[in-house]
Design a protein around this nucleic acid. Structure first.
Length: 467
RNA sequence: GCUCCCUUCGUCUAGCGGUCAGGACGUGGCCCUCUCAAGGCUAAAACACGAGUUCGAUUCUCGUAGGGAGCGCCA
């Protein structure tokens, strides 16, 4: 069997959204699983709506996710000569024809058809007509779709879907502005690039019979198709900005890890028994387009958040640290002036779901402590806190090699010698260090402050105590 | 309107004629505990509806209802 070749072919009219990302992921996995190639192609034939910024956004999104392509990116705008050549071959072979019907005429015809409850479509007026073309109209080129018979799509996810050629019309393959249309461009590209598996959103299922007819006219082998169900918003409506981030890079800004987003996406419409957690290696080994579900699924941020925390907790801190620094810098903290990103990760990863939250919670160890929570102070910075705080100060001042473990030992010893539970020492100390009642375990909370700053904050707290 | 597609807990899903309909997220409870979490245990929670096939349907067939997509000189 020839090698598997898949492609991801977004049109650069916006950002890389989660639906596109999943399509890309599935295509990527299918190629990797078979040791084949994954190709990136930018479908920018719509010169009106395509932008360079969108191209860059898609490239950046793919790079962030780590979905590396083996070939490309190819740009359709750079292949116009090829499309033109193929269109003219079709013309010469009598498999396509010029159509001089104006846009206005077309529109009037469609309006009339709709008024009569019919499916709006081209009536084939110029298909076999030999009359003199009207002056002042630049013709388009239409494909001669077969008039009769069925087209059967053997879809890898949908199964066997049959279309009646009588339902199809002669689609335009070449515009009057001298550019190719989508349905024509994809076929030429997929054929030229020897794509074996077309994996795309199911909004393309209805285009498939037309495309198959073009393959046939071209004498090219027809690839296998897999049409993926779409991803909806939490409310079941089409995913939009209203639902939060739709742009993949927006998830980065919200503090998600690529591993989490990828893992979440792979489980949308696909599963492997009861398994929820998949490494990239496992996805590649286990994924198959043949096992994809038929129905649309909703995007559930809560589950994504759970997965993200899972990866925060299990991935090597050193691996995540660079991404955390990116977030720290993003909220105005200098990643190199405060605690190490790795230490912050260890102390906070069980308490947050995203790196954005983590960075925000890390703020207390970067900025000077000026804000104290009133309730926390009232409850814990009482006269009774004097002795424990002083003991903590003494114990911490005596630590020679500053580490979370050393802090832990020092504090426990101090509490024990006072005959107090650790809570009696930890809570006042927690308020002293953070100004609040909530923080990571007391040893990490103190450790992250650094020895000098910790002692300084205890002194400040001691000064606030009632006499 | 026409064509095509879809339908299991709130959500993601397992199931492939006989199951107490399983797991996960979320939610409630309990345990653990220096706060908050994390973790462990536990509870509630689903086969859209109606026929048919069958000894037996969540599972197969057909309808109904409800959702979605397409019908562009957009992709």
């Amino acid at each position: 069997m020839s090698t598997v070749r898949t492609r991801f072919a977004p049109s650069p009219t916006g950002m890389l959204h989660v639906g596109g990302a999943r399509t890309a992921l599935f295509s990527y996995l299918e190629a990797r699983r078979h040791g084949g190639q994954f190709i990136l192609r930018v479908e920018d034939t719509d010169r009106e709506r395509s932008t360079d910024a969108a191209v860059q956004a898609i490239l950046d999104g793919m790079a962030w996710l780590g979905l590396e392509h083996d070939e490309g990116p190819f740009f359709q705008t750079q292949r116009f000569d090829r499309y033109r050549q193929v269109a003219h071959e079709l013309l010469a072979a009598g498999k396509a024809y010029h159509c001089w019907m104006s846009k206005d005429e077309l529109e009037a015809m469609r309006a009339d058809q709709e008024a009569r409850g019919l499916k709006p479509r081209y009536n084939g007026y110029w298909r076999d007509r030999k009359e003199t073309p009207p002056a002042g109209v630049t013709p388009v080129i239409r494909f001669k779709n077969p008039l009769h018979g069925d087209v059967v799509v053997d879809d890898r996810v949908r199964g066997r879907v049959t279309f009646d050629n009588a339902e199809l019309d002669d689609l335009i393959i070449w515009r009057s502005d001298d550019s190719p249309t989508y349905n024509f461009g994809v076929v030429v590209d997929d054929a030229d690039m020897a794509i074996t598996d077309v994996i795309r959103g199911d909004d393309h299922l209805n285009n498939t019979p037309r495309q198959m007819n073009i393959y046939a006219a071209l004498g090219k082998p027809i690839p296998r198709f897999a049409h993926l169900p779409m991803i909806l918003g939490p409310d079941g409506a089409k995913l939009s900005k209203r639902h939060g981030a739709v742009n993949v890079l927006g998830y980065r800004e919200d503090g998600f890890l690529p591993a989490a987003l990828l893992n979440y996406l792979v489980r949308l419409g696909w599963s492997h028994g009861d398994q929820e957690i998949f490494t990239m290696a496992e996805m590649i080994e286990l994924f198959s387009a043949d096992e994809v579900n038929h129905s649309a699924s909703r995007f559930d941020v809560e589950k994504l958040r759970w997965l993200n925390q899972h990866y925060l907790k299990t991935l090597e801190p050193a691996l995540i640290a660079p991404e955390l620094r990116w977030h720290l810098a993003r909220i105005g903290l200098d990643p190199h002036s405060g605690p190490a990103a790795e230490d912050l990760l260890i102390a906070l990863r069980e308490r947050v779901h995203t790196l954005a939250e983590l960075a925000e919670r890390a703020r207390v160890w970067f900025d000077p402590l000026t804000q104290y929570d009133d309730t926390a102070v009232a409850k814990h910075l009482t006269a009774a806190a004097r002795v424990p705080l002083q003991a903590a100060h003494t114990a911490l001042a005596g630590v020679s090699a500053w580490s979370a473990l050393a802090v832990h030992d020092a504090l426990n010893a101090a509490a024990q010698s006072l005959g107090l539970g650790l809570g009696k020492v930890a809570q006042p100390l927690r308020v002293a260090i953070t100004g609040t009642q909530v923080s990571p375990s007391i040893d990490h909370t103190v450790y992250l402050a650094g020895q000098r700053e910790a002692l300084k904050r205890i002194d400040a707290a001691l000064a606030k105590l009632p006499a």
